[in-house]
Structure formats: structure tokens, C-alpha cells
Design a protein around this nucleic acid. Sequence first.
DNA 1: GGACCAAATTGGTCAGACCAAATATAGAGC
DNA 2: GCTCTATATTTGGTCTGACCAATTTGGTCC
Lengths: 244, 244
Amino acid sequence: MSSNNTISHEIADILRDEILRQRYRSGDRFPSERDLAARFDASRGAVREALSQLEQLGLIHTQPGGARVQSVNSASLAVLGPLLALDDHPDPLLVDQFLQTFSVLTSMTVKNAVNAASPEQLTQLKQLLVELANHSDDIEAMQPRWREFLEAMSTIADNLVVRLIRNDLKAQFVDQMMKRGFQPDLKKGSTDRLLTTLGESLSKRDGELASKAMQNYFEELRGTVGKALRFNSEGHRSEQFSGA
Amino acid sequence: MSSNNTISHEIADILRDEILRQRYRSGDRFPSERDLAARFDASRGAVREALSQLEQLGLIHTQPGGARVQSVNSASLAVLGPLLALDDHPDPLLVDQFLQTFSVLTSMTVKNAVNAASPEQLTQLKQLLVELANHSDDIEAMQPRWREFLEAMSTIADNLVVRLIRNDLKAQFVDQMMKRGFQPDLKKGSTDRLLTTLGESLSKRDGELASKAMQNYFEELRGTVGKALRFNSEGHRSEQFSGA
DNA sequence: GGACCAAATTGGTCAGACCAAATATAGAGC
DNA sequence: GCTCTATATTTGGTCTGACCAATTTGGTCC
């Protein structure tokens, strides 16, 4: 998990998962710090630091007199990762929701980047696209280049809000999937089509076109990933999930 | 600010703002807990809890041996609120970026909601629209009804990822603007047009149409708000900002 | 049954201490 | 002078035990 190997993080991880697994109902009283200290055989200070993390996640609310459990719906974005990691198989619905969200944000970024890029940045982007095209056969090799390309787009678009959201989502989700060794096997045609259209949009400086291309790509990705996950969750443990 | 009136929150607020104001460069060593305890005349425990909050925000990274400051770009979404509250006048660019982001997420929610709503939910939504139309003259009165309408949309669309993001954004931003007493004065025409189109999209069950209408509305909102903020930041302190 | 008051519980803070990991420093060897 | 190593120091992580103020709880009185 995300845990540092400190006691307080361990405690936080355990309690967080218990809350996410609905072991306490929203509004319930949370065990007192002294009880938790006894339960985990730790000092109250360590427990307090753990509770501080849970409070930052929006999972509990502490007040003199007692802490109370809050609804997951009102939690912070940072609970997504733990939520996905709760079971062996990630929840297909949640994954799909993630992809859809990531799609609209990425499309927006791409659109703004293409429209706002300086001539130098345009050539840089084209260069990265060529790099990608050169490795379109090897998904492994494309991964870091995609990252670089999207990072460049993100820098050019220069929208801090989206950047922060994508930070969180990436930390919560992408890394989670990577750790599980998940590799979506998109047909090569889809990727090639995306690369071509992106190149075209760069030449024409047509952000809308780039955005649409990105959306279509994610649409296909959602289909593929959804199929793989559903197949997987039916018990046919595929090799796509090697497990951390 | 968001602070509870505890010492550790106070310390966290101060240090957070110092980091956001770039008083430490990314990568710099952060003062030791003992130094900070001396500076704030507090116990090390209180300082540690403050630092724990900063770590959750992604602003510092602590390790045995010392804590280091991280780049704001790699921080968590939760820094947006404090970032907006840093100066008397919110950064127009940041506000615009927020609105654009909120726009695509809301449009996506609306689209999915309209497409996925059950017949009962459709009538409920229409009912809420009527409510809105009845108060279209009084912005004050519309506010809670808008909230209710969007909340219903959010519930129907049932995308936890977007919901969590919107939670954070709302907490960081909307509340921030409300506290400043900011009220965008959109022309009544825009709002009426939005309401009409939304009603139409509900009847036709046309999510795409609803989405487009939402986008257009936000587009106008961005224009209006941007103008107001720029005007305001030129020193003509308008009455729109009554100050908390 | 409801209003009111005292006792127990709970979170927030403090002080002083110890350990292990990381850093800084001084010294040895070249 | 430079590099490398061993030592000393700093720093974060944790523990113990204590105190205060706010809340909650339970019982009493009307």
C-alpha cells in the first residue's frame, strides 16, 4: 500500500480500510484514542497521528468529546486508491468511472495545449509524436513516452487545477493498476489512428480535433478495459493481473 | 480559514501559507520539528501534527533525517483553497482554470445523469427545474436550488470519482468565493436559456444537449467572472467583495 | 417526561526521554 | 588537495505520564 513503514501509517491504513469496508456506519462514534492505543498496543501519540491522516482524508471528524465517522461520499479524492485496492479485483464500475473522468480532463488539457502552444512547443510535441509512432509496436516502450507527451501537454496547457486533479488521480489509480501489472491491450489500429489525428491537429493547430481524438481513444479504452475486468472478475484469473 | 481553533491547525495554516508563498524552494530542507516547536512556543507533538497535515497536502515529505519541501505542482488538490485565499483578491487565472475544470466535470455529470435517469428521477429533475424557473429573478434564492439540482444530477449520474473531485473543488473554491461574498451577476437571459434547454433535454432524454447547454452557460460565466475579477484586481474595490 | 447538574470520558497539549536512521563532521590514507 | 571512512550529531518516530477544557453521560429533581 502507500504506507511508510511507520506505526502511525500502519494504524491509519488499517482503520482507513475498516471505514471503507463500511465497518462503521456514517455518523457512528469512532473508538476513542485511548481504546485504539490499547488495541494496537501503541502510544496515544501514534494513534493521534493516524487519526489526523483519516481526518485529512475526510473519513472522520474529530472533536473534543469524540470522533465521528463520515460518509465516503464526502471524503477526499485521496480515498480512491485505497478503495480500488480494497479487493483483489478492482471494481470494474469504479475503473470505468475513473477512465471517463480522466478522459474529459485529458481531452480538455489536450485541447488547450494545442491551442496555446508556441511554435517551438508545437515542434516539440510533433517530435514526441514521432517518437511514439516509432515505438507503436512495443507497448512497454510507449508507456514512458506517453507519459512524457502528456506531461508536455499538461505543462503547455498550464492549468493548475487540472494538473492537481490528475496528480491525485494518477497517484490513486494509474500507479495502482501498474502495481497490479495491468496492461490494457488496445488494438494497434486505435493507437495509430490517435497518433495520426493528433499529428494532424498539431499541424492545423486544431485543439478541438485533438480533443475529439483523445475522447474516442478513451472510449475504446473503456470498452477494452471493461471487458478485461469483467472477464477477470468472473473468476477466470487471467495473467493480466500478476498481483503485486 | 479552514482552521479549527487548535494550535496544531494554526501552525499548519501558517507553515502551509509560507510554503505556498514560495518562502522555501522546492527541495529545500524544512526546519526541524524541534526548531518549529521553539518558534511557535508549542510542544513537538503539536508541531508533528501540523507537519502531518502538510504531508497529507503533499507540500512536504518527511523522513528520518529531515523533511523536505515539495513542489506545489505535485501537491494535493486540497491546496487550491489556501492558494486562492493567499491574497485579498483571488487570482483571476486560477479562478478561470477552476471554472473551466468545473465546467467539463459538470457537463459530464449532467450528460450521464440525463441519459441514465429513471422516469421518476426525470420528473423529479423537471420539478426542480420548475422551482428554479420560478425564482429566476432572485439569485439569492436560486443558489440553494441550484445546489439541490446539481446534487440530484450527481446522485443520478453516480460517478464516485467525479463526486469526490467536485467535493474537493467545492470545498476549496465555491465556499471560498461565498465567504468573500462574491456573486456573479449573469444576465438573466443566460440563465433562462440554460433552464429552457435543460428542460428540453430532459423531455428528449438528450444528455448531449444538456451537456452542451451546461458548457455554454459556464462559458458565459467564465467571461463574466473574469471581467469582474480583472476589474476588481485593478484596485477598484467593488462591492462584490465584501470581505469575510 | 423533561430540565438541570455532577461525574466520567474524550480530544488537545505539554514535558522529558529513548531509539534508529540519516546527515554532517573529522580524520586517515593516498 | 582529494577521497573515503568512521565517528558524532541531528532528526524523525515513538513512548510514558500528566493536565486542561469541552463534551458526553447518567442520575436527580421537579
